[in-house]
Amino acid sequence: MSETHAAINVQLFAKFREVAGCDQLQVVLPNGLPCTADQVLKQLAAQLPEVALLIPQCRLAIDDAYVAADHVIDDLNAQFAVIPPVSGG
């Protein structure tokens, strides 16, 4: 896959999983790599408009750890997850 047509697989949970109908979604990165976590979330909003309003409250996790919105992604093989607002307890 060329860098200008990069895509990453993002794990989905809760409402995102339910709306997408699957627990993983391929998010296409129109500008390739590198890109930021915030750009991934915005692209996800475009692909899942039913939950786009929740995206500003979501965080991206890479390899089981939260990353900041300006975190630069340069490894397509990491494990990505979108974490909507949590409600455990």
Partner: peptide, 12 residues
């Protein structure tokens, strides 16, 4: 508990 409800990825 306050932090669990902010940061731990669990949903109901």
């Amino acid at each position: 508990m306050d932090r669990l409800k902010e940061d731990v990825p669990i949903w109901k």
